[in-house]
Amino acid sequence: MLASCQPAAAPAAPAADTGPIKVAVLAPLSGPVPTFGVSTRDGALMAIEEWNAKGGVLGRKIEAVVEDSQCTPDPAVNAANKVIDQDKVHYIIGEVCSKASIPISEIAEAKGVVQISPTSTNPDVTLKADGSTKKYIFRACFIDPFQGLVMAKFAQGKGYKTAFIMFDQGNDYVRGLAEAFEKSWTEAGGTVVGKETYTSQDTDFSAILAKVAESKAEVLFLPDYYNIVNLVAAQAKEKGVTSVMMGGDGWDSPDLDAKASDGGFFSNHYSPEDTRAKVVDFVKAYSTKYGATPDALAALAYDATYLLLTAIEKAGSDDPAKVAEALAAIELEVVSGKVSFDKSHNPIKAAAVLQVKDGKVSFVESVAP
């Protein structure tokens, strides 16, 4: 890890109480999952605009510094070093993908910069190698073990007993969710009838899907991003695979192939169909501004920004150490629910299970921790 091959830098010094407070937004605006980046950027920028319309924070305007981190380790590291060393930011919203957020977190922790990832669900984002919590690193989303538990319980609640798991071994997010699902599934008495890996470069999944069909698994658990789900789902339909596809929040995208994935279920952080006033107001404002219904990426980036700016306000200071302490102790009602943080800087809140049906994604049920 980066922290092991470079000396820890001194924590960032508090800026003078003049000029704007800079907040970096690191998101994949290009690369394999650009819709994730656009939603994340737009959600964060809308939150910043709302705060600036009310006078900013600590009487200072908030300035967004947006960088394309591509959901990939090297570009993410370059973006993090750029915003910290050149732009002198003390706060980072991002990244989206765990494989990018983890190396960013090593840099931010060493340099005393507060990072809050909207959507990176791998536990290692906020934890050091020894299992202790990184002081400056937080997330606005639930973690993979909880997603795995939610989907395992949901599937078994529908009476399913057999599952086939396929996952990208090289993707921290995908592997972590697959492991969490398998653990929860088997502990609750379910049977894993097959497990296969692939790489992010693969486009032909026929060999694996032949094994899925042969296994007669009731559930095909595919916890990957929408671009891979689209390929697998289309090929599964072509091959007559009857397993019910299930996955995690990586499915959430306007570019998800709703026809191919029809009948599938996935865990997510919120539903725009939620009738809470905070959700209704957010969906209306976002839809008016951007002409689209906000997905979970947008909602969580918006939430992450509100959590961060509220912590700065509560700290009464632009000192990242004091802001990190305030963030750890925060309790705040946001779009994705009422949030407080556990000792590992993971939010304590509920998850939503959604279904792809008849060309749209609909809310099924909410599952609390």
Rank of each mutant, 00 (worst) to 15 (best):
S4K: 14
C5K: 14
Q6C: 08
A13N: 07
P14S: 08
P14G: 06
A15P: 08
T18A: 02
G19L: 01
V23S: 05
A27P: 06
P32Y: 00
P32T: 07
G37P: 03
S39G: 10
R41F: 02
D42M: 13
A44C: 09
L45F: 09
A47Y: 07
E50S: 12
E50C: 11
K54G: 07
K54Y: 06
L58G: 00
L58S: 07
I62C: 00
I62G: 03
I62L: 07
E63D: 14
S69V: 01
S69E: 04
S69C: 07
Q70F: 00
Q70Y: 00
T72L: 08
D74H: 12
D74L: 14
D74N: 14
V77C: 03
A79Q: 06
N81S: 10
K82L: 05
K82D: 04
V83G: 03
D85G: 13
Q86F: 10
I93M: 03
G94M: 02
C97P: 00
C97T: 00
K99Y: 08
A100C: 05
I102G: 06
I102V: 13
P103Y: 03
E106I: 00
V114N: 01
I116L: 15
T119P: 00
P123L: 02
D124S: 15
V125D: 05
T126Q: 13
